[in-house]
Amino acid sequence: MDESEEIHKQVIGFQAEIANVQTAIADFECGHNLNIAIIGEPYSGKTSLINEIERMNPDKVSRISLSSIILDRNEIQIAEESKRVFLMDDCNFLYMRRIGGFEYLEEFLKSAISNGKIFITSWNLYSWNYLDEVINVGRYFPVQIKLPKFTTDQIKECILSNYKEKEIRFEEDVEFEKEKVIEPKKYAFLIKPLEKTINIPYFTINYSLLKIRLLKRKERVEIEDIIFEKIHHVSNGNPGVAKIIWQKSLEYPVIKPSKIKDESFNIDLDYNESFVLNIILSMKSIKNDELSEIMGPDYQVDRIIYRLSKQGLVGSKEGFYFIKPEALKSIVEFQKKLRLVW
C-alpha cells in the first residue's frame, strides 16, 4: 500500500468538502480570493482533511500546523516567499480566553485579508462558535466548511478501508442478545428534612438497541451492520471517535457487538469545573499553566483537573490535557445544558 493511498483512506466521507476546497483554490487562481475555514468537533478529521489538501496541491501550498497555544508571534510569521495557498491547522491555538489573549489571532486575521494569499484554516467547532459570536471571525472566512457527522455506512467504509476483505470476523454473541431495550434503574433521592435516601425506580431506553431490534424484525440484518450501527450511535457520527471505539472493541481479528460499550457519563461538576472542561473542549489540548492563566490565581486548576480525570472526562499526555473521545458526546450535551457552548 503506497503512502498516497494511505492518506486518501483517512478522508473517506469528505469528498464533497475536498471538492469545495479544490474549487476555491481553482477560483483563487482566477482572481477570486475567498479564505476557507474548515470547522469540526474534536476528532472529526480536520487534520486529515488538511493533510489531503496538502497532498493534492504539493506545488501550491505552504503550511503551519499549530500544536499548542501560540506564545510567540514568530510562530505564525508568514514568510514572503511562502506559496500562495496557505494552510493553517488548529487555528484555535491562536487565542486564549483571557484579557489580552486575542492579540495573535487579531494579527493573523489582519494578515489573512491583506496578504494576497488564500488561507485554508481549520478550527475547533466550539472555539469557532465562540469566536464567531464575540469577534465575528466568520467575516474573514467567506467559505465555511462544517464537517458533517458520518452516517453508519460512511463509518463502516472508513474503518474497513484499513483491512483486507474478510480480514475481520464479525461474531454474534449471547451477551448482546441479553442486552435489554428498557433497563430498570434506581435514582437515589435524598429527603433533606428526614436525612433519608429513597430509591425511586425509573426506566431508561436504549435507543440504538431498539433501532437494531426493529431493523432485525423488518429484514435480515447482518451482524456486521449491527456492530456499525452501535458504533455510529456511541460515536454520535464522529469518525475519529468511531475509530477509537472500534480499536477498543476489536479483539483482532474478531469483533462482537457486546464489546462495544455505550458508556454513559453522569457528569457531576460545579460551574468552575465545567468552565475548565469547556476550555479543554474548545482548545483540543491545553497545558496546566495555560489553564491557570485563563482561570486566574483564585482557582486551583490541579484540583479541578483531578475531578475531571476522576470522572473519566479528561486524559493527559505529555503535559497536555485533552477530552477523552468516549466522553465527548456526554460532555457536549452537558455543556449545552449549562449554555457554555453556543
Partner: peptide
C-alpha cells in the same frame, strides 16, 4: 478594551447575534 475583553472572556457571558454586548 480591557473592559470589553473582561466581558467577552467571562465564564458567565452569553453572546449571540440577538444578544450582543
Amino acid at each position: 478594551k480591557i473592559l470589553k475583553e473582561s466581558v467577552m472572556t467571562s465564564k458567565y457571558v452569553y453572546v449571540s447575534r440577538k444578544r450582543p454586548f
